[in-house]
């Protein structure tokens, strides 16, 4: 694996930052994919069922690439399934935004839009990572994410500027979700170490571009951007929301009922 060969003395320090950083990215993709996959077959139109499933599949693909990379780097024999199915809640590092319930279609679309819009900035930042494998994943994912942003933004705009009913729902989703975006831009020690090692961008550096994009889409959707509030969720540090253990319980139940089985 291509962690541009850190000197041995630094290796454990790099790993202490490197693997958790990869898991933050991977967990976000996995958990959002899990949420979107649950919608499949229940969407407002057949065409849209197919479109959302495509996004869920892309996210799942990103998670798998990142897990494989993290597992290899860590070298403890954990593959993608060990990482997905055999960690407990506190060992997951996705932002809380990704795990929130789907809600109605307005909330489903807006939550996914918030996250993929963040990913768009993240991938751009990661193309300069010293971890060339990560940079390659970012480069591949950036193309997927560009389309996800376009499609989800199209829905946010249509629902915002649709009927009074759809506008009410989209505004409600916006008011609910907006504070959860704050977490995406909070730097902690892991982030600072990752940035110092040139692994990935500091989250706070992604904020301006993200907020500009969101403001643009929300404006086009004729919605009102909520005032900023000092609310900070902490999923990236492993402290999640109440709903998260249900998400994991459902996802992991079968795998955990058969320890050691292959599928």
């Amino acid at each position: 694996m291509s962690v541009s060969d850190p000197p041995p003395a630094q290796a454990s320090a790099v790993c202490a930052t490197h693997v958790p950083t990869l898991l933050r990215y991977a967990d976000g993709s996995l958990v959002l994919s899990q949420r979107l996959a649950a919608c499949c077959g229940h969407g407002p139109a057949l065409e849209e069922d197919i479109a959302l499933a495509n996004i869920a599949l892309d996210l799942l693909g990103q998670a798998r690439l990142l897990f494989a990379h993290a597992g290899a780097l860590e070298d403890q024999g954990r593959d993608e399934d060990a990482l997905a199915f055999w960690r407990v809640e506190s060992e997951f590092h996705n932002p809380v935004l990704c795990e929130l319930p789907n809600g109605d279609f307005a909330q489903t679309c807006l939550r996914a839009f918030f996250y993929v819009a963040w990913q768009a900035e993240l991938w751009a930042g990661l193309t300069h990572s010293v971890d060339r494998t990560l940079a390659a994943v970012a480069q591949k994912s950036a193309k997927e994410t560009r389309y996800h942003c376009e499609h989800l933004a199209a829905w946010v705009v249509r629902l915002g500027d649709g009927t009074p009913e759809s506008q009410r729902r989209q505004q409600r989703a916006l008011d609910y979700l907006y504070p959860y975006a704050n977490e995406l831009f909070c730097d902690d020690d892991t982030d600072r170490a990752a940035a110092a090692a040139q692994l990935g961008p500091l989250p706070s550096t992604l904020e301006a571009a993200w907020r500009a994009r969101i403001a643009r889409v929300i404006g086009e959707a004729t919605l009102a951007l909520p005032a900023p509030v000092p609310f900070y969720s902490t999923g990236r540090q492993g402290r999640h929301s109440e709903c998260f253990s249900y998400v994991l319980a459902e996802m992991q139940a079968l795998a955990r009922a058969h320890p050691g089985a292959t599928w």
């Binding site: 139109a45 057949l46 065409e47 849209e48 197919i50 479109a51 495509n54 389309y147 376009e150 499609h151 199209a154 249509r158």
Partner: peptide, 20 residues
């Protein structure tokens, strides 16, 4: 063919439905 509310979504959905 497919159903879509407008041209932009028709194009996006065509991509998702017919070029998987």
């Amino acid at each position: 063919s497919l159903h879509a509310p407008d041209g932009q979504l028709a194009l996006q959905l065509a991509r998702d439905v017919y070029t998987r």
